Computed example of a mutant assay.
Amino acid sequence: MLVKKAEIIITAVKEEQYPPEGVPEIALAGRSNVGKSSLINTLINRKNLARTSGQPGKTQTLNFYNINDEFRFVDLPGYGYARVSRKEREKWAEMINRYLTKRQSLREVVLLVDIRHSPGEHDKMMYDWIKSIGCTGIVIATKADKLSKNQQAKQVSVILRELGVEDRSLIIPFSATKKQNKDKVWQLFDEVLEIG
């Protein structure tokens, strides 16, 4: 996809702050610091439209990005960050849940996991949830540049087994640094948007 326009529309906490329905949305879910913002920046060829941070738990809102006036990326708050109070974590969970269950424009929820580690409990819960609402079950395995091709293949098998992914081609090793599999991700997203 050729991205000619990319902008952040709004950072929302409440439903009434969401942009109007009608434009297809792809939501990105994953642990804190897994690389959701880096993925967005890489896909749209921008350095920092989506703010990245070395500090986990930075995204505490739903961030809506307009792409080419055709669709939106929605960056969800990262989960599983230990240093945040339980009350705060519950607030995020409620915010994410409300968006995912009520949003008519939502076409797909994509799970991001760190390829270097086995998926954790939160990842498994999120993946099961994504599948239960009828999404494809696309998994983007980030930070792939940190592993050799052989190690990547091994870790893809681990992710496949741990999450119970039915189709190996739905797990995409991705590197924001090396732009590895950027085209492959776009290809899947194009399919999602056409189906929608």
Rank of each mutant, 00 (worst) to 15 (best):
Glu7Val: 04
Thr11Met: 13
Val13Thr: 15
Lys14Pro: 08
Glu15Thr: 14
Glu21Asp: 15
Val23Gln: 14
Leu28Asp: 02
Ser32Asn: 08
Asn33Ile: 04
Asn33Gly: 07
Val34His: 10
Lys36Glu: 05
Ser38Cys: 08
Thr42Gln: 08
Leu43Cys: 01
Lys47Leu: 06
Asn48Glu: 12
Leu49Asn: 12
Ala50Glu: 08
Ser53Gln: 04
Gly57Arg: 12
Lys58Ile: 02
Lys58Pro: 04
Gln60Val: 03
Thr61Val: 15
Phe64Asn: 06
Glu70Gln: 12
Glu70Ile: 08
Phe73Asn: 06
Phe73Ala: 07
Val74Trp: 05
Leu76Asp: 09
Gly78Ile: 04
Ala82Tyr: 08
Arg83Gln: 15
Arg83Met: 07
Val84Lys: 09
Ser85Tyr: 14
Lys91Val: 07
Ala93Phe: 06
Ile96Ser: 02
Ile96Thr: 13
Asn97Trp: 06
Tyr99Glu: 02
Lys102Ile: 03
Arg103Val: 01
Gln104Lys: 15
Arg107Gln: 11
Val109Ile: 13
Val109His: 04
Val109Gln: 03
Val109Asp: 07
Leu111Tyr: 05
Ser118Gly: 10
Pro119Thr: 12
Glu121Asp: 14
Asp123Pro: 12
Trp129Tyr: 15
Trp129Ser: 13
Gly134Lys: 10
Gly137Lys: 01
Ile140Gly: 00
Ala141Gly: 06
Thr142Asp: 05
Ala144Val: 07
Ala144Phe: 10
Ser148Thr: 15
Gln151Thr: 11
Ala153Cys: 04
Lys154Trp: 12
Gln155Asp: 08
Gln155Tyr: 09
Val158Ser: 06
Gly164Tyr: 01
Val165Asn: 00
Arg168Ser: 01
Ser169Thr: 02
Pro173His: 05
Thr177Gln: 11
Thr177Asp: 08
Lys179Asn: 09
Asn181Trp: 03
Asp183Pro: 07
Trp186Thr: 02
Phe189Glu: 01
Phe189Ala: 00
Phe189Lys: 01
Asp190Trp: 08
